[in-house]
Amino acid sequence: MPWRRRPSGRAAAAGAGSRPVAEVLLSLQGLSKRFGATLALDHLDLAVAAGEFLTLLGGSGSGKSTLLRVIAGFEAADSGKILLEGRDLAPLPPHARPLNMMFQSYALFPHLSVADNVSYGLKRDGVAKPERARRVEQALAMVGLEGFGGRSPQKLSGGQRQRVALARALVKRPRLLLLDEPLGALDANLRERTGFELRALQRETGAAFIMVTHDQQEALALADRVAVLEGGRLVQLGPPRAVYDQPATRFVAGFLGGANVLEGMPDGQGGFDCPGLGVTLRPAVAIPADCRACALRPERIAHLAHADRPNSFDGIVEDVAFRGDDSLLLVRASGGALLRVGHAEEDGPPPERGSRIALGWEAAALVPLHS
């Protein structure tokens, strides 16, 4: 099965790109869910297009797994609508909903063979045995497990069990597949490879995928769109590059890619006073009067000979961390702000701890944050 290496660092932020607007397959309207005093979903609205790969990204407790379970029917929403092709799913139990869900644990039956695991749903639906066998064979071939039908799941590797679970989810040919951390149990190399195989499968089947992940690079690299959740609310939704390059809030800026959040306020003359850096910043866009912070990605900061131009300052390197394809510098500005700064390997050895350096960036690198 074809796969490709996931790009790292800045290249990963390009993601899978966006696709033309298609018909709405799933519409979530005003979805709310409480667990006691905890509001897990807060009047959430979301539309998913047919054939779209959407990733749900957020911190622990953001509501992403709860949202998946509510769509699947394993949790009942307190209010709101779940419409699949215009049909309200709320009255339907999980097994009657025309979608499938793949769990992080894979949930394979250890006493059944691989083929019987994959065919379980078809058998429950009353599909005739010859048709079941044909579709199981097709599903196993799709995930690269031809000839594995007679084996026990206990004798498979973690990656192979993941493929069996995926084949079982796809064999019923759902238009919507829900995936809860499907790659979480795999090691890094296998996770990368399987992630792109998963993307290729999604394109091949034409099904819409909604995937929960805590891996930011994974979310950016695989998705058509990324939905960022915080406190049960959808705080930003868009193509991976747009969400990465133009974060809407402090949370998105800090959570996704670790952008620097520079506190300050507009100076009334097109600039942004930033006491933490000890300078007035000059963004490329107009700063709203109520803006109190701007985002600046570490990789957008350049090393300068002198801090003598707009959007530049001198700082002291407090720490250096090697990350493989680059190094991360922690630089303290005169105003007290601590900035994360990327240093590419092709630029030579990184500066040493305690050294003074001049840094700057293009005006377009500064992104005003709404909240």
Results as ranks from 00 to 15, higher is better:
Pro239Glu: 15
Tyr244Ile: 00
Asp245Ala: 15
Asp245Tyr: 02
Asp245His: 01
Gln246Thr: 08
Thr249Phe: 05
Arg250Asp: 15
Arg250Asn: 14
Phe251Met: 06
Leu256Ile: 15
Ala259Arg: 02
Asn260Leu: 04
Val261His: 05
Glu263Ile: 09
Gly264Asn: 12
Gly264Lys: 06
Met265Ser: 15
Met265Gly: 14
Asp267Cys: 10
Gly268Asn: 07
Gly268Cys: 10
Gln269Val: 02
Gln269Tyr: 03
Gln269Leu: 09
Phe272Glu: 06
Asp273Cys: 12
Cys274Pro: 06
Cys274Tyr: 03
Leu277Cys: 02
Leu281Ser: 10
Arg282Thr: 12
Ala284Phe: 08
Ala284Met: 07
Ala295Ile: 03
Arg297Asp: 03
Pro298Met: 11
Pro298His: 09
Glu299Gly: 02
Arg300Tyr: 03
Ile301Phe: 02
Ala302Tyr: 07
Ala302Ser: 14
His303Trp: 08
His303Thr: 08
His303Lys: 11
His303Phe: 13
Leu304Lys: 00
Asp308Ile: 10
Arg309Cys: 13
Ser312Glu: 08
Ser312Val: 07
Asp314Ala: 08
Gly315Gln: 08
Gly315Lys: 06
Ile316Trp: 10
Ile316His: 11
Ile316Gln: 13
Glu318Arg: 14
Asp319Val: 02
Ala321Met: 12
Phe322Gly: 04
Asp326Ala: 09
Leu330Arg: 14
Leu330Val: 13
Val331Met: 11
Arg332Gly: 09
Ala333Cys: 15
Ser334Trp: 00
Ala337Glu: 15
Ala337Pro: 08
Leu338Val: 11
Leu338Lys: 15
Leu339Ala: 01
